[in-house]
Design a protein around this nucleic acid. Sequence first.
DNA 1: CATTTTCTGTTGTAAAAACAACCGACTTGT
DNA 2: ACAAGTCGGTTGTTTTTACAACAGAAAATG
Lengths: 219, 219
Amino acid sequence: MEKYIPVLMKTRLFSGLGEEDIRAMLTCLQARLGTYKKGEYVLRQGERTGDIMVLAEGQLHIQRDDYWGNRSIINAVSPGDMFGEAYAAPESGPVQSDVLAVEDSAVIFFDVKRVITVCPSACRFHSIAVQNLFFAISEKNRRLVRKLGVMSRRTTREKLIAYLSEEAKSQGSSTFSIPFNRQQLADFLSVDRSAMSNELCRMRDEGLLEFEKNRFRLL
Amino acid sequence: MEKYIPVLMKTRLFSGLGEEDIRAMLTCLQARLGTYKKGEYVLRQGERTGDIMVLAEGQLHIQRDDYWGNRSIINAVSPGDMFGEAYAAPESGPVQSDVLAVEDSAVIFFDVKRVITVCPSACRFHSIAVQNLFFAISEKNRRLVRKLGVMSRRTTREKLIAYLSEEAKSQGSSTFSIPFNRQQLADFLSVDRSAMSNELCRMRDEGLLEFEKNRFRLL
DNA sequence: CATTTTCTGTTGTAAAAACAACCGACTTGT
DNA sequence: ACAAGTCGGTTGTTTTTACAACAGAAAATG
């Protein structure tokens, strides 16, 4: 777990805490480490969890598959990102999505109850972590609303523009990489892959953007 | 404000608290009341707020209008519902959506800082409220993901089925009302009104459901 | 009560997306 | 190095949606 402390320091959940503080918290919160090979599931729909998780290494997709095999990717999780916090509340039922490792990954688990309850030893970082958790969830909330904004676009082109603009903005550059290949991007935007591929090339021909693999540049 | 205490008692934010406790909290948190006529805006895109709000009476829509006048309704807010909590974090910028009163409404405002900071008088309900707030946000989070599930449906019919099923489930009956007229439902699902109206009637003719105005029954 | 406005359903047309099938380039694994 | 599989782009067809325009019913207004 030690080797992931630098990643944790950049996590919203631990922002404002130093290396030593985090080490103390890992113990205090009884953090556990899980590793997953590419293609393995961290969580499957219907399972229950009382954990908040942070991705330490690799790449995850949060997704749902319907009865007809149509896949819908809800979110991509990168190192330092937190997930599972929506199921923190005791009354929240089983998880409603799959969490798939799309690369070999390492995940750190924290028991929610230990995070939101003041610990017996009154560890002094605890209150900071609670507030961080709160801010992290509200940030996740805004992210979901932004995704709704993308999904509410009527045409594939508009969805692409909305998504790519957001990505450029959040990465602070008109040149950026996305955590998806074409099929995954289509599943993320809920459109047909071939139609999307078509649209992307048309936009490239019109001079709106350039791309190569999962690297894009908006013009 | 006194007359809205029964509503507040049913709010997730104050669950587990008695009438007296809530009265104490209203003071402790310096709650303010705002009233809005039908058609007025509680918040407009670009404004900043450090408040968490609870709808005491009436009906609100959280929505966005794009440059082309295309409206997208993100959520309907009913009495007892909380909103604005996503902008609780200090680093969250201005609000990204409009909050419109679709009926004459009353809204109670709470300063976020006062909620998440322990009050000087160490009011004993405070810690309960913080935990409730946390659970309420994570519940909102799950609701947003469910909406993403609806929006990720490819066809208008699938969106309708997904939305109406969720509504039936959450209202615990196959007969239920929705907080939208046809145009609003279309804006909520991001589809064309006439196409949706068409699809609804076709589904009715096929015996999938019945409806009259905003009242539906799934068969 | 008459008038205006809003709401809902209907129809026809044009645009867009889904679907299916295929191909060549590139990876992966053995 | 070869076979198998993945990935991205292309094309043609079918289905679905968006758009526009209209009409009757219901609701709101004065």
